[in-house]
Amino acid sequence: MTMMKSAIKLMGAAALLAMATMGQAAAVECIAPADPGGGWDFTCRTVGKLLYDEKLMEEPVQVTNMPGGVGAVAYVNIMSKRPADAAVIVATSTVGVTQIAQGKYPAGTDAMRWIGMLGTDVGAIVVAKDSPYKTLDDLMKAFKENPGSVVSAGSSGAGGWDHIRLLMLAKAAGMAPEKFKQIRWVQFDGGSPAVTQMMGGQVQVVSTDLGEIAGFVESGDARILGVLSDDPIPTFPDAPTAKSQGLNVTGYNWRGFYTGGDVSDEDYKKWVDTMKSLFDTEAWKKAAEGSGLVPIWRGGEEFEAYVIDQAKQMEQISKEIGVL
């Protein structure tokens, strides 16, 4: 009996291992490292649904929200518990890479395998509909006159990508870097909660991704002071760019995925190929553009090299503006 039980246990372990190494054939979990409603949550839920709808997955994708540390909690979870589990992917973006570059995650980019990016969001500076600030110039004047007079917010901590984008604008407007620390910054787990608090009067301005708060703009509850893109955004063509207001600043935030650092080359390639297949569908392009994303593909080794290079750039920018 003991030998039979042992054999059954071994068979069960082998079955579990087979499921884990099957990657896309097994039930897949997508971890969104934030609360529902944010950009990472959107990435997991939209991509997960389309993977199943477009028959690129045999079973529906399970979405798990794992907020904490602007993605650090999810990073630790994959590193410590599921480094070789090909049935789990994690949504990430420029925000996450910025945190890594600043040493706020427990390891560098080499701890994971970077699957690909499917599109990029655009940074936006928004205020409540009845805000006294009508232009970016109005806001920057307020910062320069009294940096602590305006409470700002975003979905990253002080020194994170949302914060950096606001400081890049302040720098372009002529604000002295030594005054950056006087700007009051509040972190929320997502752009939507930040805008909700802004509508309640707790904060006065939000720096975040346009895709996260597009609904508030469409409803008229939030007003765009500037989008951080080279050209106007098709979804909101009347929203002025920072460049058109004399501030030469752009702030893109790509959307993509990583998986554990010990996932096999075979399963990693399956994920890259699967995401590329999804990117090529009309359904993804429609979903992306409808949420303010610009569909752009980078995958596999090219994407891994891009992430490494971007981490270096974020480290340099952080040093230049005095947050690192």
Rank of each mutant, 00 (worst) to 15 (best):
T21L: 07
A32D: 06
V294D: 05
D273R: 11
G256A: 00
G154W: 10
K286E: 10
V205C: 01
P132A: 10
S6A: 09
L51C: 11
F42E: 09
A172L: 01
Q24P: 09
A287T: 03
D162T: 12
M57D: 02
I100K: 08
I78K: 14
A153N: 05
D221T: 14
N253V: 00
S155P: 05
K312S: 03
V90P: 00
F257G: 01
F257Q: 00
L278Q: 03
P177Y: 12
L136E: 00
M1I: 10
T109K: 00
A288E: 11
D238A: 09
I183N: 01
W40M: 05
V76D: 07
T46G: 11
Q187C: 07
S264A: 06
K181G: 09
Q316V: 02
R82A: 11
N253G: 03
G215M: 09
V73Y: 02
L278N: 02
S152L: 05
L278S: 06
F42W: 14
L51D: 12
T196W: 04
T259V: 02
R82T: 13
G23S: 09
T109L: 01
R113S: 01
V206D: 03
V227R: 05
P177R: 14
Q313E: 03
A124N: 02
Q204L: 05
Q310D: 03
Y133P: 04
E54S: 09
